[in-house]
């Protein structure tokens, strides 16, 4: 906030360069800056409030969507990232202490470690994000589970024709392909099934589908069956143009955390129909972590700038306000992650 250039750290008692003319005492200036920063942090909290509100509202009303979606997040990475941020908070807080004690070298080293931690956090986020992007586990219209997700999800495109009083499935070219890949196992009657419907008439093409039409079919076999992406998730936007839409259970059944592990009973079982609109969970996930990630990046820029100024000898035990404020910002970023981690990764 209120920073003036200062060329030498040890200011004169009368007119240190960092003192601004409209303040009477250094402590008044320090307290003002700090209060300004706290107010700014309050606005940051309220900025995140919007996403927390969306989270609360959708989670409270559609818990299944969250329980289902969160399985695709990796607790391990989340926990590691939490520790990385906590450690960076420690070094950040320590750097303020170093600034107060005039330990310039230590302060710069600590700020640098903090910066590195921020980098590590973003790197891990990058790994997680690229996983999600690869699997098509994205928000809204971009939600198209594919690739890896298809391996872990033992899919079943169920069709609730009977209940809805008319079939509303769509013609899907992927259908035949799906059967070729999945058909052999699916032929047990429990496996993947796709119920295409042209012009609204349910065309049960084979017995597998008749059985598969039961949305709640348990994944008794447990084999990972690969299905093409477009079979697994018909674009939700298109889906809901059909009447009455958006209600048909999707029938995606995840078998295990990793499709290629020992296979029997390991990992999560999803019983019952796959919830609708799981993309909202991923929307909120990307919204929250994305906004948080942007804040981490901004924090890293601030840390870099602090290091630069520290190297220029701008700070002294009398004047270290920018360090204090920058570190406060960094702590807030940590503070928000402390809530994000359990809310997103530890559901269920």
């Amino acid at each position: 906030m209120s920073k003036k250039h200062s060329s030498d750290g040890a200011g004169h008692a009368e007119h240190p360069k960092w003192m601004q003319h409209h303040f009477d005492t250094p402590s008044q200036q320090f307290a003002s800056s700090k209060m300004g920063m706290w107010l700014f942090l309050a606005t940051e909290v309220l900025l995140f409030a919007g996403l927390f509100c969306a989270y609360t509202v959708y989670r409270a009303n559609h818990m299944d969507m969250f329980v289902f979606g969160h399985q695709f997040l990796d607790v391990k990475w989340g926990a590691i990232n939490t520790c990385v941020l906590l450690f960076s908070s420690l070094t950040a807080a320590w750097s303020v202490r170093a600034a107060q004690l005039g330990q310039k070298g230590l302060m710069i080293a600590l700020l640098f470690i903090t910066l590195l931690c921020g980098g590590a956090f973003m790197a891990i986020k990058y790994v997680e994000y690229s996983h999600k992007i690869h699997d098509g586990l994205l928000w809204g219209t971009k939600y198209k589970p594919a690739g890896h997700a298809a391996e872990v999800i033992h899919g079943e495109e169920a069709h609730a024709a009977g209940e809805l009083g008319g079939a509303h499935g769509r013609v899907d070219e992927g259908h035949t392909e799906a059967e070729q890949v999945a058909g052999i196992e699916a032929a047990h009657g429990e496996g993947a099934a796709e119920a295409p419907a042209a012009g609204g008439d349910a065309l049960a093409t084979d017995g597998a589908q008749a059985a598969g039409a039961q949305a709640a079919a348990p994944a008794a076999q447990g084999e990972g069956v690969e299905l093409p992406a477009d079979v697994l998730a018909i674009d939700v936007a298109e889906r809901s143009t059909t009447l009455p839409a958006a209600i048909g259970p999707r029938g995606l059944v995840p078998v295990a955390e990793e499709g290629h592990d020992d296979g029997h009973g390991a990992g999560h079982h999803w019983e019952g129909p796959i919830p609708d609109n799981v993309h909202i969970f991923f929307g909120i996930y990307f919204g929250m972590t994305g906004l948080h990630g942007i804040h981490v990046l901004i924090g890293m820029i601030i840390l870099g700038w602090l290091i630069y100024r520290a190297l220029k000898n701008d700070f002294s035990p009398e004047y270290f306000t920018p360090v204090d404020l920058g570190v406060l910002y960094w702590h807030l970023v940590d503070l928000i992650w402390i809530f994000l981690f359990p809310l997103l990764y530890l559901i269920g």
Partner: peptide, 21 residues
């Protein structure tokens, strides 16, 4: 005011990225 900030951001991602909330 921060709440209108996030609301406008969500509206923008809703339009550009198809967020869907």
């Amino acid at each position: 005011t921060p709440v209108i900030g996030i609301t406008m951001l969500l509206l923008i991602v809703e339009r550009t990225l198809g967020f869907g909330i």
